[in-house]
């Protein structure tokens, strides 16, 4: 990957990676640091990266960097299943996407990761597997569990609103 191609990747993917990381960290400064670290690591190895796989490489690097930060911030996160039942804002004032975003925070980190990669970036199961280091079947299981969990949360919210 040349410097020009690298800079093109910055234009194309910096925002995507930032949104992906921000969904996990909920902290803009930390998220920007992760993005910066990610691109720095990619720049150092740019000569060995095929530009066609640059996006995947970027997300893989971002995911690994993100895991380090999450573990540093919350040593047990990603292992325990969160069971939050409260929302930061009144449900009546939130639209569906906002409720969904809140519901997303109630998923374990790995489920959140695979769903975000699937929905935000449209990655296939195999690509998500490459990025996260999971088997394709594991990715499917996590996505299915995540969808069911999200559905349960949405149903319970509907019941509350009604």
């Amino acid at each position: 990957m040349t410097a020009k191609e690298y800079n093109s990747c910055v234009d194309q993917y910096a925002d995507n990676i930032y949104r992906f990381v921000l969904k996990h960290l909920k902290n803009e400064d930390e998220a920007k640091d992760v993005v910066q670290d990610t691109f720095t690591k990619v720049w150092v190895k740019k000569d060995t990266i095929d530009v066609k796989k640059a996006k995947s490489y970027l997300f893989t690097t971002a995911h690994h960097t993100l895991i380090d930060v999450v573990r540093r911030n919350k040593p047990n996160d990603g292992i325990e299943v969160l069971d939050k039942t409260h929302f930061e804002r009144p449900l009546e004032n939130m639209d569906l996407q906002e409720i969904l975003e809140e519901a997303l925070d109630q998923l374990p980190e790995i489920q959140k990761t695979v769903v975000l990669l699937r929905d935000y970036e449209g990655y296939g199961y195999d690509e998500i597997g490459e990025i996260t280091g999971l088997k394709e079947s594991q990715v499917k299981v996590y996505i299915f569990r995540a969808r069911k969990k999200l559905k349960e949360i949405l149903v319970s919210i509907e019941a509350v609103i009604e």
Binding site: A14, D15, Y18, R19, L22, L96, E101, D119, L154
Partner: peptide, 22 residues
């Protein structure tokens, strides 16, 4: 409800200036 579990990215959330990354 299942159909509503699909997330849509908020495109208004951006990294900001990418100059420092280039």
């Amino acid at each position: 409800v299942y159909q509503n579990t699909i997330l849509n990215p908020d495109k208004s959330v951006t990294f900001g200036s990418t100059t420092e990354l280039k």
